[in-house]
Amino acid sequence: MKLKIENLNKSFRDNHVLKDINLEVSSGEIFGYLGRNGAGKTTSIRILMDVFQGDSGKITMDGEDFDPSLYKIGYLPEERGMYSKYKVGEQLMYFAQLRGASKAQAKKSMDHWSKEFEIEKYLNAKLETLSKGNQQKVQITQAFINEPDILILDEPFSGLDPVNAKVFQDALVEYIRGDKIIIFSSHQMSYVESFCNDIAIIDQGKIVLQGNLKEIKKKMGQGKLRLRLGEDKDLSFLAGRDFFLDEEDIILTLKPTETKKSFLQNLLDMGVDLLAFNDYLPSLQEIFIQKAGDKHEAV
C-alpha cells in the first residue's frame, strides 16, 4: 500500500495551517512524522482520518482516491483520553465496534491485544483505578484493536517504563510485517531513529524535509568530517575553518577545494595527534533542530 498526500492545504479562518503538504507513506515500514507542537501534525492526521476535509489537495491510496471508510484506522492521540469511570474491557469493545468491528470480532481482537500488552487482568476494572503506565497500555491496546490497516501513533512511548517500552517495540516490529501502514510521531528522537526508515519533518505547516533517514543523514553530512584528537591538542589547524564541537569530537566542514584525502594528508603532515577520522552523520536530533528549530538556532 502506498498512501500519498499531494498539495494539501488547510486554513482555519485566517490561519493557514497546512501549506501544500506532500507526503508519501509506504506499508511495511514505519514512517516517522516529526514536527514541533502546533506545526500541523494533528491537523494533517485529522484530515487523513476524515474528521474534516482539506481546502485543496488530494489523498490517494495506491493511486486511487483515498476513502478512509474503506480502511481500518487505529489512532493513539497525543492527548490521551478514555472514559475514566467505565470498565476497560467495555471501552475497548466500544471503540472497536465504533470502528466497524462486529461484537465477535471486537471480542476476539480485544482478547488478543490485551494479552499482547499484558492488560487482560484489568479488563473488568475501571480505567481510573489503574496505574498511569497501565492506563497507557490500555490506550495503546485501543489503537491496535480491530487490527487497523493504518496505525497512527502519536508519542506512544510517553509514560512507558523500559520493560513496557520493549514490549510495545516488539509488538510494533511484529505488526509492521503484516504489510500495514504505520505513522509514528514522537519527540523522542532516539525511538524514531531506531524504528523509522522514512521520515518527514513539518514546520509551520510546511514539509521542510522528507525522505529516507539514512540518505538524509548522508546528504546532510556531506563535506563534513568527525575528528577525535589525542592528548596533544594542537588546534592550530582549525584556524579559518568552519567547525563546531560535539562533546569530545570536532565536526568540521571541508573547503570546496579540498578532498577528504588531501585534508587527511595535510593533518598527517602537520603531525596532528589523530585518534579518529570519520564521515560525519548528523543525529536526527541535530537534523530536527536544524530544520524545525527557531531561526536563530538554525545552522
Binding site: V51, I73, E79, M82, Y83, F95
Partner: peptide, 15 residues
C-alpha cells in the same frame, strides 16, 4: 466530560 477527558479525540476519529 468527553471533551474534558479527551475521549472526544478518539470518538471523533472513530466515527
Amino acid at each position: 466530560r468527553e471533551k474534558d477527558s479527551r475521549t472526544m479525540e478518539l470518538l471523533i476519529t472513530s466515527t
